[in-house]
C-alpha cells in the first residue's frame, strides 16, 4: 500500500510538472509583453527594457523556466503584473472565500445526493424514482450562470429576502471587526461566537451555495443510483437473499459497501467540478474568491496570476485524483 501511494504521488508530480510546462508555454505565447504590462501604459522604451531585465525576461526561455520552477518549489509564484504583489500572497487572500463556498456546496452534494441516489435505486421504476431521476438530470442540465441570475431575480429583486451578492453586507463590515482565523467567515464567526456576522454571512452564502451545489447533487445522485443498481444485479446479492438475509441488511451492508468505491470517486470528481463552477458563479455574486481573481487576471492578461491560479487548481485536481485512486485501492479485490 505504502509503495503504491508513493508511486501514485510520483506520477502526480510528473503530471503537475506537465501542467506547469504547458501553462508556462501558453503564458509565453500570449501576444502581449509582460514587461510593458509591468511598468504601465505610459512608460518609456527604456523603462520597459529595465523592467525586462528586472523580471528576468531577457534570459533564454529555458533559463526562465528553470527559475520559475525553482521559485515554484519555494512557493513563490512571481509577482502580479497588475498589482505588483506576490501572487502567492494574493491567492492566499482569495482562496478561503472560494474554499468556503466549495466545501459547503460539496457538503450539500453529499447529504442530499447520496441518499437521493440510494432511495432512487431502492424504489427503481416507481414514481419517486422517476421524479428523483428527472430532478437529478435536470440539475446537471442547468447553466449555472443562468441559475445564478435567475435566483437573484427572484430572491433579491422580486422577493427581496436575500442579498444580491458579496460576502457580507456593508453595514456589518463597518460595524464589526471581522475575525480572521481561516479566512472562512462562517467558520471564523462561529468559533468566535459573533452570531451577527455569522447570520449575515450565511444569508450571503445561501444563493451561491445552492447554485453551485445543484450540479454535484444531480451528478452524485445519478452515479450513486447506477452504481447501486449494478451491484444489486450481482450474484452475491441474490445469494445473500437466498440465505434469508433481510432486505435492509442486503441493501445497507452487502450492496452499499460495494458501491463505496464508485461513489467516492464521483464525489471527488464532483468536488473538482464544483471548484470550476465557482469561477462562473463568483463573477455573478461578486464573491471575492479565486474565480473573480482569475477573471480579472484574464482580462488584464496578468499571466503570473493566471499561472498561479491554474497551478493551484491543478494541484487540487491531482490531489483529488490521487485520493480517488487510493479509495479504489482500499478495495480488498485490488491487489497491489
Amino acid at each position: 500500500m505504502g509503495s503504491y501511494i508513493r508511486k501514485r504521488l510520483i506520477l502526480g508530480l510528473i503530471v503537475l510538472l506537465g501542467v506547469v510546462t504547458i501553462t508556462f508555454t501558453i503564458a509565453r505565447v500570449i501576444p502581449s509583453d509582460p514587461a510593458a504590462k509591468w511598468v504601465g501604459p505610459r512608460a518609456t522604451q527604456e523603462q520597459i527594457q529595465e523592467a525586462r531585465i528586472e523580471l528576468g525576461l531577457d534570459k533564454p526561455l529555458i533559463v526562465q523556466f528553470g527559475v520559475y520552477l525553482q521559485n515554484l518549489i519555494k512557493g513563490d509564484l512571481g509577482y502580479s503584473l497588475r498589482t505588483h504583489q506576490p501572487v502567492s500572497k494574493e491567492l492566499a487572500a482569495f482562496i478561503p472565500a472560494t474554499l468556503e463556498l466549495v466545501l459547503l456546496s460539496f457538503l450539500f452534494a453529499v447529504i442530499i445526493g447520496v441518499p437521493l441516489g440510494i432511495y432512487s435505486a431502492k424504489k427503481k421504476d416507481r414514481l419517486l424514482d422517476h421524479i428523483s431521476r428527472l430532478f437529478s438530470i435536470g440539475a446537471v442540465s442547468l447553466p449555472t450562470f443562468w441559475v445564478a441570475l435567475f435566483f437573484q431575480l427572484i430572491f433579491y429583486s422580486r422577493l427581496g429576502i436575500l442579498p444580491l451578492g458579496g460576502r457580507l453586507s456593508t453595514e456589518i463590515t463597518v460595524m464589526f471587526d471581522i475575525p480572521e482565523i481561516t479566512g472562512m467567515i462562517l467558520f471564523d464567526s462561529a468559533v468566535t461566537g459573533q452570531w451577527e456576522i455569522f447570520k449575515d454571512a450565511l444569508m450571503h452564502m445561501v444563493l451561491p451555495c445552492i447554485t453551485i451545489a445543484l450540479y454535484p447533487i444531480g451528478l452524485v445522485a445519478r452515479m450513486t443510483r447506477s452504481a447501486l443498481l449494478e451491484v444489486l444485479n450481482e450474484d452475491y446479492i441474490t445469494a445473500a437473499r437466498s440465505y434469508g438475509l433481510k432486505e435492509n441488511k442486503v441493501l445497507w451492508s452487502y450492496a452499499l459497501k460495494n458501491t463505496l468505491g464508485p461513489t467516492a470517486i464521483v464525489l471527488t470528481l464532483s468536488l473538482g467540478y464544483t471548484l470550476v463552477n465557482t469561477f462562473l458563479v463568483e463573477a455573478i455574486y461578486s464573491w471575492p474568491g479565486l474565480g473573480n481573481y482569475v477573471a480579472t487576471a484574464v482580462v488584464t492578461l496578468d499571466y503570473p496570476a493566471i499561472m498561479g491560479a491554474t497551478i493551484f487548481s491543478a494541484i487540487c485536481y491531482v490531489t483529488l485524483n490521487i485520493v480517488a485512486d487510493i479509495i479504489i485501492a482500499l478495495d480488498p479485490r485490488v491487489r497491489l
Binding site: I22, I30, G272, T310, S313, Y317, V318
Partner: peptide, 22 residues
C-alpha cells in the same frame, strides 16, 4: 496516458480560458 493525465488535470473550463486567452 501520461499526456492524457496532464490534460485531465486542467479543469476543462480553465484550459479553455487559457487557450482562448492566447
Amino acid at each position: 496516458m501520461r499526456i492524457t493525465d496532464i490534460f485531465l488535470s486542467f479543469p476543462p473550463l480553465l484550459l479553455a480560458i487559457a487557450i482562448v486567452s492566447v
